[in-house]
Amino acid sequence: MRAVVQRVKKSDVKVDGKVVGEIQKGFNVLVGISKDDTIEDLKYIRDKIINLRVFEDENEKMNLSLKEVGGELLVISQFTLYGDCRKGRRPNFMDALAGEEAKGFYLKFLEMLKEENIKVEAGIFGANMEVNIVNDGPVTLILDSKRSF
C-alpha cells in the first residue's frame, strides 16, 4: 500500500460538482493498493498516518501527531500511485489492485481509521473526483508499506 500524505489547512473532494468529503486541519491522504497488499499493510499505513509527528508544537517544531492536534483526514483512493513509469511514456498499472477487491480494501482502510476516533472523510471509490487542497507548510510525505523507499 502506498500513501501520499499532505498536511493541510483544509481540503475537500467533489464528485459531479458536489462536495462528498471535506476537512479542516489535518491530512489529505491519497492511497493506492497493490495486488500484494494484506490487512497488515493497511495497519502499517494507518499507524504511520495517525502517528506521524509533523504538526508544530508550542516551540514551532514538528513534534505532534494528527491525534494530538485533533486533526482530520480526507482519504482519496488513487490507483495511479502504482503507475510504473520506468519504461516508455505510458504508465503501467499492473501492480495496482483493481475492481471490487480494491474497493473492499479501501473501505476496510477507512473503517480502520474511523476506529481511531478521528474524523474521516472520503472520496468515492472509482469516481472522477476534483480534489481541492490548501497545503500547510507544505508538508508532503510518501509512505509505502513494503518500505521500498
Rank of each mutant, 00 (worst) to 15 (best):
A3T: 06
V4A: 08
V4H: 07
Q6L: 10
R7H: 10
V8Y: 04
V8E: 01
V13W: 01
V15S: 08
D16M: 01
G17C: 03
G21Q: 08
I23L: 05
K25P: 00
G26Y: 04
G26E: 07
N28M: 14
K35P: 00
K35S: 02
D37S: 04
I39C: 00
K43T: 14
Y44P: 00
I49A: 10
I49Q: 08
I50T: 13
L52H: 02
R53M: 07
V54I: 15
E56S: 14
E58R: 07
E58C: 00
N59L: 12
S65G: 05
S65T: 15
S65M: 03
L66H: 07
E68S: 09
E68D: 13
V69H: 05
G70F: 04
L73D: 10
L73E: 09
L74C: 10
I76G: 05
T80P: 09
L81V: 13
G83D: 12
G83Y: 04
R86V: 02
K87V: 10
G88Y: 01
G88W: 01
R90Q: 12
R90V: 09
A96T: 05
A98R: 15
E100G: 12
A102E: 11
Y106G: 09
L107H: 07
L107E: 15
F109N: 12
L110K: 03
M112A: 04
I118H: 01
I118T: 03
K119R: 14
E121S: 09
A122S: 15
G123A: 05
G123R: 14
F125R: 11
G126P: 10
V134P: 00
V139R: 00
V139Y: 01
T140P: 12
I142R: 01
I142N: 04
S145W: 01
K146Y: 13
S148P: 01
